[in-house]
Design a binder for these strands. Structure first.
Lengths: 120, 120
DNA sequence: TGAATATATGAGCAATTATTCATATATTGT
DNA sequence: ACAATATATGAATAATTGCTCATATATTCA
């Protein structure tokens, strides 16, 4: 048989139709997934957490997280490309900061989730 | 030379010390990254979005997203293992629903982020 | 201009992962 | 018990990715 999709009987057609209302379309899903993916790595989570209250330069971040300069810079680029952080240049030093309050909120919600689950 | 970490001069030692306050430790970072990672895939994003207002069974979800039953089940397991969704069994049918309001909030924040960025 | 410093980036590798395929488990009805 | 149905899952594979290494770009200072 071929790689059938859901060949099974439609169980709840009314609900499926209703779900169309909230279902995000594939392009939006891709962008949303990419945004969450930016926070889906322990190193990037720590970078964001370090920037919660203040801006820091690449070398600060590398020292703080015990990373190489290269690894830090690579990860920061990902965060910047997805508009989670913004940069400010001062001479040769580049300061990174969270882009806006949305990011802080999103991050906090995530923290609440893991505190709410897996251990009290 | 060896794979040096941040061998460069400490630029802002005071800020680095301050950042220790908000810096999440590696275990928490791993758990937080895992939580965000659950939403870091377009298929899982669409599954969550379909469950915003109501519960749906596996076959409903597969049909709605045009996925195979197997792929749907695999992805739902990831969401369930991370406590983003919960299940209710009724005979052979397993209904999936969002675990709590936190998830809805987290998802909404993500949506706001992508709407705020990349296009007006 | 040339050396030093701070950051950025391309290539490569090891590790992770989303899907498919085949099959297992669980429930219902005959 | 047996067939049918709904879901779950292990193995395999192609694609993605985080880090390292080497090197490039940019800025400051002498």
């Amino acid at each position: 048989m071929d790689a059938a999709l859901c060949e099974v009987t439609f169980i709840h057609e009314d609900r499926v139709q209703a779900a169309q209302q909230t279902l995000v379309d594939p392009p939006a899903a891709a962008r949303l997934a990419a945004a969450f993916d930016a926070l889906a790595d322990p190193t990037r989570v720590r970078l964001i957490s370090a920037l919660i209250d203040q801006e820091l330069c690449v070398c600060d971040l590398a020292a703080l997280l015990n990373l190489t300069q290269s690894a830090t810079s690579h990860q920061l680029r990902i965060l910047r490309n997805l508009n989670l952080v913004r940069t400010r240049k001062e001479g040769r030093i580049v300061f990174y900061a969270l882009d806006d309050q949305h990011i802080r909120d999103l991050f906090q919600r995530g923290l609440e989730h893991i505190r709410h689950n897996s251990q009290g």
